[in-house]
């Protein structure tokens, strides 16, 4: 018989809460980047947050502040780079991405002594999230979900038809940057539990899975959030019972969810062929 007494412990309750909040928030912002086909921008912002957090650890200030500043700065740089098209967006975002990764390794290399905390940011540890992390994550979830509810019509217009949104007088550029900054804040809030290298999979996989299943944005948001939470909880349970890293198990679970959604996607099905007689 499976021993469920572990769920009585405070650390496990915190982890379940972090999985719920992180799963919802990451998946919701994931819907934005997947629908706008901006996955690489998201990867870049995720690594910027990781580099910022490591800078904080190295210099001795709160790593979340470093992560927030770096992710917002990355969003502020990669947005115009993608828009203006002076360089191929893939090239310029790739350069910023590699710079962020380089900075992350530099800061880690410059640290003195044990690097346990830094490695935790690398892989994440949902089983050790503290009260402060949960509060930050809950506040972020509340703000992101609230903004989506209030500005749903503008968000739908911008992520599906950005040029049209601009042409009808919607402040499309403000909304677009708001979505990029939301991605940065979400990544920062989830860094502790999921980890800098793995967070992006949790943003991308549940949203990409939901994208395979529906043509309705509202349903896509709900399905992505459900997939995100399921990935977090299933990964968490696997992590505890098989004694494997939690971040890795969460990401692998979300990848499996994506694989299943793609395999059973109604969007891949071809309508039954029928021979229609030629007329005229």
């Amino acid at each position: 018989m499976v021993d469920l007494s572990v769920f009585q412990y405070h650390f496990m309750q915190n982890a379940i809460l972090a999985g719920l909040l992180g799963g919802i928030t990451c998946s919701v912002v994931g819907v934005f980047v997947v629908t706008m086909h901006l996955s690489f921008i998201g990867v870049c912002i995720a690594h910027a947050a990781f580099a910022g957090a490591l800078l904080g650890l190295w210099l001795g200030f709160n790593p979340l502040i470093g992560a927030l500043l770096f992710s917002l700065a990355a969003a502020a740089i990669v947005g115009p780079v993608a828009d203006r098209g002076e360089l191929n967006p893939d090239t310029s975002i790739g350069i910023i991405f590699s710079l962020m990764l380089g900075l992350a390794f530099l800061f880690m290399g410059l640290m003195q002594g044990a690097r346990t905390e830094a490695l935790n940011l690398f892989w994440g540890s949902i089983l050790t999230v503290g009260r402060q992390d949960i509060i930050f994550l809950a506040a972020t979830t509340g703000v992101i979900v609230g903004l989506v509810a209030v500005f749903y019509k503008e968000i739908q217009a911008v992520i599906c038809h950005r040029e049209v949104a601009l042409a009808v007088g919607i402040p499309a550029t403000v909304i677009f940057y708001g979505l990029l900054f939301s991605t940065g804040v979400t990544i920062t809030a989830s860094l502790q539990s999921i980890g800098g290298l793995l967070i992006y999979c949790l943003i991308l996989n549940p949203a990409a899975a939901a994208y395979q299943l529906t043509y309705s944005l509202k349903k896509m948001l709900l399905i992505a959030a459900a997939f995100g939470v399921i990935s977090c909880w299933a990964g968490l349970v696997a992590s505890y019972f098989f004694d494997i890293p939690s971040g890795a198990s969460i990401v692998i679970t979300s990848s499996v969810v994506f694989g299943l959604a793609t395999a059973f996607s109604p969007k891949r099905k071809v309508k039954r062929w029928q021979q229609v007689p030629l007329t005229g």
Binding site: C160, M220, K267
Partner: peptide, 8 residues
Amino acid sequence: IDPRLPIN
């Protein structure tokens, strides 16, 4: 446009 876009 992407045929899978979630908007009708």
